[in-house]
């Protein structure tokens, strides 16, 4: 079953074409890793899929419905941003944050359940701003999962987080996809992690230059080399 279908997506910013004719299908149960250098258009792609950017050409469908026509798909979607921005002393506890994600007030038990599942139950009465990056990230995953979404979208979610938390985070993702059958779309810089976790890979650099099973990508040395060179050039460019 098709969960997401993107057809000929083009986003033109005043000075640059951020996405050029990108087409992509994500099926139920896919664990898709989107890789690409900085400025490759990953964030623009996500913003368009999430309804935050509406100035695009082409068509984006979730569950066979054009997202320009219906926002209902957002109910089935959990989103974990790259680095959630909030005031450090914002007076909300972990439970308060997860509750924000909850659609029905009656599902209060679900909060405890999800906090336990993500190993942050003992932090539930702590303020979000007091926690480490890794702990905060798990809180935001809990918030994204509290409505039992069918699809989870994560934007480079390991930036600035310690290795132990990253490992825990990856094992959580693996379990969500394999046991709970949640479709995952995840953008990452970490090629090794994508190799280990994702079953599909999309290589983006304004255009989509590969999309398919991750085995195919990682067994093709030429593709991996091409990707690495593209990232390296970006890297040099940025320094």
């Amino acid at each position: 079953m098709k969960i997401v279908e993107i057809n000929n997506l083009t986003v033109q910013y005043p000075d640059v074409k951020a996405l050029d004719d990108v087409s992509l299908v994500v099926n139920q149960g896919d664990f898709l890793g989107i890789i690409g250098p900085n400025g490759a258009g990953k964030s623009t792609l996500f913003a368009s899929m999430l309804g935050l950017n509406t100035k695009y050409k082409g068509k984006i469908k979730f569950f066979d419905k054009d997202i320009r026509k219906s926002k209902n798909y957002l109910k089935e979607l959990g989103y974990v941003p790259q680095k959630p921005i909030f005031e450090k002393n914002f007076p909300v506890t972990v439970t308060d944050v997860v509750r924000m994600g909850l659609r029905k007030e009656s599902d209060e038990n679900k909060i405890d359940e999800i906090l336990q599942q993500l190993w942050i139950h003992e932090l539930r009465n702590r303020r979000i701003g007091e926690l480490s990056g890794g702990q905060q990230q798990r809180v935001f995953i809990a918030k994204a999962l509290v409505n039992n979404p069918k699809i989870l979208i994560l934007d480079e979610p390991v930036t600035g987080i310690d290795q132990q938390s990253i490992d825990l985070f990856y094992s959580i993702l693996r379990e969500l996809n394999s046991k709970q059958k949640i479709t995952i779309i995840w953008s990452s810089h970490d090629l090794d992690a994508v190799n280990q976790l994702a079953n599909h890979v999309a290589c983006l650099n304004r255009t989509l230059f590969f999309h398919g099973e991750s085995e195919k990508f990682f067994s093709d040395d030429k593709l991996v080399k091409q990707y690495s060179e593209a990232s390296m050039q970006e890297h040099m460019h940025h320094h």
């Binding site: 309804g51 935050l52 989103y79 959630p84 909030f86 909300v92």
Partner: peptide
């Protein structure tokens, strides 16, 4: 708390 996430 966070406008963008609230929109999503």
């Amino acid at each position: 708390f966070n406008e963008e996430q609230a929109k999503v």
